[in-house]
Amino acid sequence: MLDKVRVRTWAPPGHVRTPSYLRGKIGEVERTLGPFGNPEQLAYGLRADPLALYRVRFRMGDVWGADAERPEDVLEAEIYAHWLEPV
């Protein structure tokens, strides 16, 4: 089971639902959802692989560093399994 995860720093072309501002950031899995079809395939009418979808919780301080408005606030986003690596 995933716990602490890092968002991959890939930058592929095309339809991707992993926001740039979270790439390379470390967070914790808040809950596991899915499986849902991979949107990177669905967007092009391809047969989509079912993927787990993780709600990942990031500390604002880990996302924005010293510029964070209040480092203890949190941000949660849904990230597909293939975009996450264990830390």
Partner: peptide, 15 residues
């Protein structure tokens, strides 16, 4: 208030 934690939900995918 400063004591309240803010939780921002970025609705990036299927939820």
């Amino acid at each position: 208030p400063a004591g309240v934690t803010l939780r921002v939900h970025d609705s990036t995918a299927d939820m």
